[in-house]
C-alpha cells in the first residue's frame, strides 16, 4: 500500500539528527558501537583471496594497539560468493560473520533460477548472511507481486543464513518508492515464516549506484521498520550501505536509529553499516580521543 511521504520534511528531520552534538564519553562509546556494526566490504572484480584474507584480519582486529577496553571486531566481512570460502576460513572462531552478496548482484538482471542458485551456492560455501538485490525493473514497472515472490524464494533459499534485502534506493529515486519497497520487502520475507530479531534486514544500496545511502532514505526505511514492529512485534534490521565514509556521519546515523527505533536497535544484530573506508576514520577518531592527536592515514592498515 502506498504511504504518502513528504520529502522536504523527511530531509529536515534527517538534518535534525546531524545537529546532535556527540561529545566525550558519548562519542567514545558511539565510535566503538559504530565499529562493531560495520560490514567490512570489498566488492571488486579484482578482489583476490589475499585481499580478502587481509580484510578478514582487519575485521577481527581493526587496529593493532593496546587500548582499554579492547576494541570490538566489526560485525561481518562482505564479499562476492566466489570468495566466501576464503573469508569463512580466515574468520573461523572470531565471531565475525561472513556476508555474501548474491542474486546476481549488483544488477539482479538474471533469470530467477540463476539468482536463486547464486544464493544456494553462497550458503553452501558458508555465508552466514546473504545480501540480495531486489528486481528493480519489476518494481518500477509496477510488478510488485513478482518482486515480493522473488524475495520470498530467496529467503527460503537462504535456509538459516540471515537475509539482507537491498532495495537499491538510488534507482527507486523517490522516497515514496523507498517506503513501498521497504514495506514490500519486509512482508515478503515474513511470508515464508517467522522472523527472529536480526534475521532479516533491509538495506539501502549495492554501493554501485549513486546516490547510495542517504539519511533521508534511511529514515524512511527506519520508519517502515518501526511501523512493522508496532504492528507485529518483530524487529527487522537496517543496513545503510555506500557513502558513509566518516565517523561523524556514522554517529549521525546512530542518533537517527536511537531516536527513531529506540535503543533496542543499537546493536550489530539489528543495525549495520555497509562500508569500507569508514573503519579507518572511526579508528582515527578513537585514537584522537585516546591520545589527543590526529592520526595520519598511513597509521592504519588499508581495508
Amino acid at each position: 500500500m502506498r504511504k504518502p511521504i513528504d520529502t522536504v520534511m523527511v530531509e529536515q528531520r534527517a538534518t535534525s539528527f546531524t545537529r546532535r552534538s556527540i561529545k566525550t564519553e558519548s562519542k567514545q562509546q558511539g565510535l566503538r558501537l559504530a565499529l562493531s556494526m560495520i560490514d567490512l566490504t570489498t566488492l571488486e572484480g579484482k578482489d583476490s583471496p589475499e585481499k580478502v584474507r587481509s580484510l578478514c584480519h582487519k575485521a577481527i582486529t581493526p587496529w593493532e594497539c593496546e587500548i582499554e577496553p579492547p576494541l570490538p571486531s566489526v560485525a561481518a566481512v562482505c564479499v562476492y560468493p566466489s570468495l566466501v570460502q576464503v573469508a569463512k576460513r580466515a574468520l573461523e572462531g572470531s565471531g565475525v560473520s561472513v556476508a555474501s552478496v548474491a542474486t546476481g548482484f549488483p544488477s539482479g538482471q538474471y533469470p530467477i533460477a540463476v539468482r536463486l542458485n547464486d544464493v544456494v551456492e553462497a550458503v553452501k560455501s558458508g555465508a552466514d548472511e546473504i545480501d540480495m538485490v531486489i528486481n528493480r525493473g519489476a518494481f518500477l514497472s509496477g510488478c510488485t507481486e513478482e518482486v515480493a515472490d522473488e524475495i520470498a524464494q530467496v529467503r527460503v533459499a537462504c535456509g538459516k543464513s540471515h537475509l539482507k534485502i537491498i532495495l537499491e534506493t538510488g534507482e527507486l529515486e523517490t522516497l515514496e518508492n523507498v517506503r513501498i519497497a521497504s514495506d514490500l520487502a519486509i512482508r515478503a520475507a515474513a511470508s515464508t515464516g517467522p522472523i527472529n530479531d536480526g534475521e532479516v534486514f533491509i538495506k539501502t544500496s549495492t554501493g554501485k549506484v549513486s546516490p547510495a545511502a542517504t539519511m533521508p532514505v534511511t529514515l524512511v526505511m527506519l520508519e517502515a521498520i518501526r511501523d512493522y514492529y508496532e504492528e507485529t512485534g518483530v524487529r527487522i534490521g537496517m543496513k545503510p550501505a555506500g557513502g558513509i565514509k566518516t565517523a561523524k556521519q556514522a554517529l549521525h546515523y546512530l542518533v537517527m536509529v536511537k531516536e527513531t527505533l529506540g535503543d533496542d536497535w543499537l546493536t550489530p544484530n539489528l543495525f549495520r553499516f555497509g562500508a569500507s573506508s569508514l573503519t579507518n576514520d572511526v579508528l582515527r577518531q578513537i585514537r584522537k580521543q585516546q591520545t589527543g592527536s590526529y592520526a595520519a592515514t598511513y597509521d592504519f592498515s588499508e581495508a
Binding site: 558519548s26 562509546q29 558511539g30 566503538r32 558501537l33 562493531s36 577496553p69 579492547p70 576494541l71 570490538p72 571486531s73 560485525a75 561481518a76 572470531s94 565471531g95 565475525v96 560473520s97 552466514d128 538459516k160 540471515h162 527472529n196 536480526g198 534475521e199 546512530l254 536511537k258 535503543d263 543499537l266 546493536t267 550489530p268 544484530n269
Partner: peptide, 13 residues
C-alpha cells in the same frame, strides 16, 4: 548464525 561479537557493547548509548 547470528553475530555474536566478542566485544559487543551492551551499555545504553
Amino acid at each position: 548464525m547470528a553475530t555474536t561479537n566478542k566485544n559487543q557493547n551492551t551499555a545504553k548509548w
